[in-house]
């Protein structure tokens, strides 16, 4: 990180009962930058609201509910539904069915939709902001799952703190990233219909990837698979991230290789 001062103007959205932080990195937080942030935030807010209407299994008229009732419209007419469906089925296959988009016998992609929604709205409404040379970085954090990017010619890196599950006012580690996605899953995470394979030995899993859907699925799977099965998956799928076991020890894995994390001073 260099000495030049960055500003991080941001807005918070409440959708799906989750806080979404839209945040920019800039050296010049002038009116034009602030206006772009405002417009992008409004667009993201609106899009997330529509995604909630379309994908909530609790709404009678959602695409998911219609599909559950055997209606053909969602699959035939909605490109978004097709995209979510295809990714959810693939995720099920790639994770040996530990992630499943079925709940109580019905199709319910809730565990995938949030990551997909963040990724989609980020690409659609935030990425164009990087055309402005005053904007060095863009990020969207939905309840702890983050998509981020920086200008190609920028030195700026996003500092992503990984929450300490035992003390939410603390972080246990920091990633400095230019582009990508970070997702963290814990025992208390809601909205995911995960089946625990083993007695749970894993307290929290963070996965770093290019794709947030990918990171989110693997973080979820890491919680439910149990430490042995997940270690094997880390190797086979070249995963990167941090696992915190029940002894509160962080285990670092990078590109599929697992190493004991060492506490280092900054």
């Amino acid at each position: 990180m260099n000495n030049e001062k960055y500003y991080f103007p941001n807005h918070v959205i409440n959708q799906m009962n989750i806080p979404f932080t839209v945040k920019l990195a800039t050296r010049f937080p002038d009116d034009i930058v602030m206006e772009q942030l405002k417009v992008a935030t409004e667009n993201i807010d609106e899009a997330l609201h529509q995604i909630d209407l379309d994908f909530s299994p609790f709404r009678y008229d959602s695409l998911v509910s219609k599909y559950q009732r055997g209606e053909e419209g969602p699959m035939m007419d909605s490109e978004n539904f097709q995209s979510v469906y295809a990714q959810s089925i693939l995720a099920e296959q790639m994770t040996d069915s530990i992630f499943t988009p079925y709940f109580a016998g019905r199709y319910d992609p809730t565990g995938l939709v949030k990551g997909w929604a963040i990724e989609k709205t980020f690409d659609e409404f935030l990425k164009p902001l990087l055309k402005d040379t005053k904007i060095e970085g863009i990020s969207l954090n939905g309840g702890g799952d983050i998509k981020l990017a920086t200008r190609q010619d920028s030195d700026f890196r996003w500092g992503i703190g990984i929450e300490n599950p035992d003390d939410l006012q603390e972080i246990i580690a920091t990633y400095y990233l230019k582009n990508g996605a970070v997702a963290t899953s814990g025992n208390s995470k809601r909205g995911e219909h995960i089946i625990r394979m083993n007695q749970n030995q894993v307290e929290q899993v963070t996965v770093v990837s290019n794709s947030l859907v990918d990171a989110d699925i693997w973080a979820t799977v890491g919680i439910s698979a149990g430490i042995n099965k997940f270690s094997q998956m880390i190797n086979e799928n070249y995963l990167s991230g941090i696992l915190i076991d029940k002894n509160h020890e962080p285990l670092n894995f990078s590109e599929g290789l697992i190493a004991n994390a060492q506490e280092t001073s900054l």
Binding site: I18, G144, G159, P165, T184, G186
Partner: peptide
């Protein structure tokens, strides 16, 4: 802080 975003498992508004 050099940190701008927090990744964690707690997520309600």
């Amino acid at each position: 802080s050099n940190i701008q975003q927090i990744s964690g498992a707690t997520e309600t508004y």
